[in-house]
């Protein structure tokens, strides 16, 4: 095992897949000569050259579209968005081309492409640069949506995403790029669509993903100090969702909290709760609660941002509420 940062797990996944498969290439703003805005592609230009590591102008619709067109020809593009906030200007390409072409052409074409980059709030970036995009993409049939929170998951899932025949939206975290984790020396893949129990427990299920994972784990620690044993499930793949893993846990604990970075209204958290109430209603001993952003655009000021974000303390409050402890 090696202890590496998430950004290097991502870089290593890309490098291994590029070395393995000539069809894989990386494109995006500053991915080459600058070595990546967050250094997720450090050294790749030097190793693979300008043919396969392409700096693009600031034209997300343009290079997302080029990636889709290249994928239809059988190449395997990795398109980096400097942040997923900028994917908004390429939304039509992802919604109407990447997600639709296989269906619309009755299977004549596939779009094996990965769109990746940091997602959700970092620190004091204001409303336009602090948004969580998984509800927009997870809403769309024809897309796979992944959100990673550890170096191990980032490397294993990104490699699977690059090899997948489908368009994959791969969500990372600016705040977590430096977080270190253990990664095997030998090659491994993590299957898409499988959740992971990040902390086993028996009293309450906390369902989370991406940047929510470390928050949920801290909430579980705080709860443990009060004698509540929380199980933390990291969904890892948001579409298709590992509903079975969620239901199995909820049937055991009878209580659930969904903790995530993002707005409450119409989000992935709603889908988790809908699945629980449809399929495990009789197993519930309390309403399922959400801990997420407040329903406001993200303010810049530090004190206000801290009020909007999900915290371990807010997570603990929800865990207490569903276990009827005050």
């Amino acid at each position: 095992m090696a202890l590496i940062q998430i950004r290097h797990a991502i870089r290593d996944a890309i490098a291994e897949e590029m070395a393995r498969d000539e069809r894989v290439f990386l494109m995006g703003e500053e991915v080459g000569h600058y070595n990546g805005a967050y250094k997720c592609s450090e050294g790749l230009l030097e190793r693979f050259g300008e043919r396969r590591v392409l700096d693009t102008p600031i034209a997300e619709t343009g290079f997302a579209g080029v990636g889709i067109g290249a994928a239809m020809c059988g190449l395997r593009p990795i398109v980096e968005f400097m942040t997923f906030n900028f994917s908004a200007v390429a939304f039509d390409q992802i919604l109407n081309n990447a997600a639709k072409i296989r269906h619309m052409t009755n299977g004549q074409f596939s779009v094996p492409i990965v769109f990746r980059g940091p997602n959700a709030a970092a620190h004091m970036l204001g409303s336009t640069h602090s948004q969580a995009f998984e509800p927009f993409y997870a809403h769309v049939p024809g897309l796979i949506v992944i959100a990673v929170a550890t170096a191990y998951d980032a490397k294993g899932l990104l490699k699977s995403a690059i090899r997948d025949e489908n368009p994959v939206v791969f969500l990372e975290s600016e705040l977590m790029y430096s977080v270190k984790g253990e990664v095997p020396e030998e090659e491994y893949l993590i299957p898409i669509g499988k959740a992971d129990i990040k902390r086993p427990g028996k009293d309450v299920t906390v369902i989370t993903w991406g940047q929510g994972v470390p928050v949920a784990l801290r909430s579980a620690e705080l709860a443990a100090a009060e004698g509540i044993d929380a199980e933390v499930i990291d969904l890892r793949t948001l579409r298709p969702m590992d509903t079975e893993a969620v239901l199995t846990s909820v049937r055991k604990t009878n209580r659930a909290v969904v903790l995530f970075h993002g707005w409450p209204y119409g989000g992935v958290g709603c889908e988790v709760i809908a699945q629980i109430q449809e399929q495990a209603f009789d197993d519930l001993d309390a309403p399922v609660l959400r801990v997420c952003y407040e329903d406001v655009p993200m303010p810049y000021a530090e004190n206000l941002e801290n009020l909007v974000l999900p915290t371990a303390e807010r997570g603990l409050a929800a865990i207490r509420a569903v276990t009827y402890r005050r």
Binding site: R51, A64, G65, V66, G69, M72, N97, T105
Partner: peptide
């Protein structure tokens, strides 16, 4: 015949991607 696109203009970069693949 590679489409068939009904959102105005959104095939223009996709077509560039086909040409990119040929050059690649």
């Amino acid at each position: 015949l590679w489409g068939g696109y009904a959102i105005v203009g959104n095939h223009v970069p996709v077509a560039a991607g086909h040409a990119f693949a040929a050059k690649y």
